[in-house]
Design a protein around this nucleic acid. Structure first.
Lengths: 137, 137
DNA sequence: TTAATATCTATAGAAACTATAGATTTAAAT
DNA sequence: ATTTAAATCTATAGTTTCTATAGATATTAA
């Protein structure tokens, strides 16, 4: 059995966030010690890791709850789970692309800015520059 | 002069968000039409694009305000601006790496899940799987 | 001139946490 | 066995970054 602090350390999810997830019904209310502290089975490590990964992916809590609910009903067809994954793939990919463009920009800046006053500094100028935008705005 | 709607269309920042940024002092209160509607100079396109790029990068509004303030005082050394950029570069990079790992996972899932019931479905299992984690948790 | 559309302010709500306060429990050190 | 430090508890409020709504007014196109 794990205390909430251990669960936190092992999953990277902060303690108050774990309690928040319990409130949001992403995880079940765990057993309690005689002194009323939460005690988790190791199995919760998986579920919480699932949640963390999904959040890192950008899935909304509602989507995550949906996936978790689906997974609790293994008799249903998995088209829905599949669909949720596919839906997010596109947005993840564009997010990556965008971040990469901006990463390049930022890297250039962080190295390139040898000017000793803001007037000549890259950082400010580059970030307002549209030349790297592939977006439609 | 641009209406707030045009500014929005051209920068990709939503109308209420523009007003919010004005409130947060990221942009100056613009001139008004005789009927009290906001009218922007084209110059605001740059500033707002700067803000959008910076947000996309993951910079906090406070950091952005700091950069904007720095840029308004070109006599100061640019080490600070440089530092802010560098600070974020590392976190951007790790975010990209993480997203890429998870993208691969998700892509595999979206294609690979031909099972017709949740019981055999990849999606659920893969997301709770730690094998792709390079993080320390 | 009349619609349709866009803006205005002010306020409330949403999402996903995060912090605080004051009380209690647990673990570690004497 | 006691003490003390660290962790946990509940409940509530605050944070950040928007987003939505309502009711009033402006602007633009037909």
């Amino acid at each position: 059995m794990l205390s909430i602090g251990e669960l936190s350390r092992r999953t990277g999810v902060k303690v108050p966030t774990i309690r928040y997830y319990e409130q949001m019904q992403l995880i079940n209310a765990p057993e309690r010690s005689t002194g009323n502290q939460r005690r988790y089975f190791k199995a919760e490590l998986n579920r919480l890791s699932f949640i963390k990964h999904a959040r890192d992916l950008g899935l909304k809590i509602d989507d995550i709850r949906e996936l978790l609910t689906l997974s609790a009903h293994p008799e249903q067809p998995c088209a829905s789970a599949n669909q949720i994954a596919a839906n997010h793939l596109a947005s993840i990919r564009s997010r990556i692309a965008q971040l990469q463009r901006l990463e390049a920009e930022l890297a250039r800046m962080a190295e390139g800015c040898d000017a000793d006053c803001i007037g000549n500094c890259y950082v400010i100028e580059s970030l307002s520059n549209h030349s790297l935008c592939t977006e439609s705005h």
